[in-house]
């Protein structure tokens, strides 16, 4: 429990969350637009592109996922650009829980902590993407993924309970899922808490949900499942970065942020890097504190990277499909 002060009751939690300062939507969006307007050129751009690759959770979350598709995704994660072996690897592959053994098998010795150059495996759990299942099912889903060897669990919060004002219930569920992330040896899989900001709709709600997820023990707060529009937006990510910055100021602890879905171009992603660096600080630009959840982003970054190295644009046939 990381609630500051008061005993944790439904009432104290509500008072705390509803007492957070409001968010002025116009001001927030204006600030996000100004950060997106930074002009990142030449050496800074080269560095930014490599950083984006290093911070990407390469993702496939389709009903049609097969072992072949997952192996192909892992190959892309390990060698994003076969023609340029100096291209960094992505941080993780993100799959459904039942695909974790396949992903691990394909990674082989490359499996490891992305902060040390390895590629880890993230699994979505807790009845992703809707989260509409009993707690028992969500916990079983989580344990199954952890037992299968997932390094990171991307859970969804119960948006229904949150919107109905049952903050305590959402809190307890996150605490329980965190507990289910415990491995046999006592260590924990890292827990990313997906708020599904597109369904929370208001910035005030998103700020409350961010605090709630951190108080309950989340290691990362993540915007979206990618299955609901709008997915990640820059203003929402800015807001969540403000929360982790404030949390760090209060407790000294650093929580990660993961925008997911909707980030398709290198230019957009660079705007996110600028926002991270100028809001939470440059220190957040490492795999255990910031991730992009994306599938098509990587190829645009690779195209931009090729352009910077060769001086001309190639085309979609000069990067691999997946």
């Amino acid at each position: 429990m990381r609630l500051i002060g008061a005993d944790l009751t439904e009432k104290s939690l509500r008072l705390h969350l509803e007492g957070l300062p409001g968010v002025d939507a116009v001001g927030l969006e204006r600030r996000a637009a100004s950060l997106a307007g930074r002009s990142i050129k030449t050496t800074s751009k080269a560095r930014a592109l490599d950083t984006i690759i290093r911070l990407t959770d390469l993702t496939t979350l389709e009903g049609a996922d097969t072992p072949g598709k997952v192996r192909s995704l892992v190959a892309k994660a390990l060698t994003p650009d076969p023609a340029r072996p100096d291209t960094p690897r992505v941080a993780a592959v993100c799959v459904y829980g039942d695909m974790v053994p396949t992903a691990l098998g394909a990674l082989g010795s490359a499996h490891g902590d992305p902060d040390d150059g390895g590629v880890s495996v993230a699994a979505v759990a807790t009845a992703f993407p809707s989260g509409r299942a009993s707690l028992a099912v969500k916990l079983a889903d989580t344990r199954d993924a952890v037992e299968n060897g997932a390094d990171e669990i991307d859970m969804v919060i119960d948006r229904g309970a949150f919107l109905a004002g049952r903050y305590g219930e959402v809190f307890e569920q996150i605490v329980a899922v965190k507990d289910a992330c415990r491995r046999g040896d006592g260590t924990f899989a890292s827990l990313k808490v997906i708020l599904e900001t597109g369904e929370l709709a208001t910035y005030d709600g998103i700020r409350r949900a961010s605090w709630l997820a951190i108080l309950a023990g989340g290691d990362f707060i993540k915007t979206s499942t990618g299955k609901v529009g709008p997915a990640a937006t820059l203003p929402v990510t800015l807001l969540m970065l403000e929360v982790v910055r404030d949390w760090h100021r209060l407790t000294g602890e650093r929580i990660g942020v993961k925008p997911a879905g909707g980030i398709r171009s290198a230019k957009q992603a660079i705007g996110y890097l600028v926002t991270v660096a100028e809001t939470a600080g440059e220190r957040w630009l490492q795999p255990h504190l910031f991730r992009f959840g994306a599938s098509s982003l990587l190829n645009d970054v690779l195209l931009q990277r090729q352009r910077l190295l060769t001086g001309h644009y190639s085309g979609p046939d000069y990067v691999t499909m997946d």
Partner: peptide, 10 residues
Amino acid sequence: MSFLEYAPAP
């Protein structure tokens, strides 16, 4: 080099 040392963009 720091990321925040943005290269000149005149």
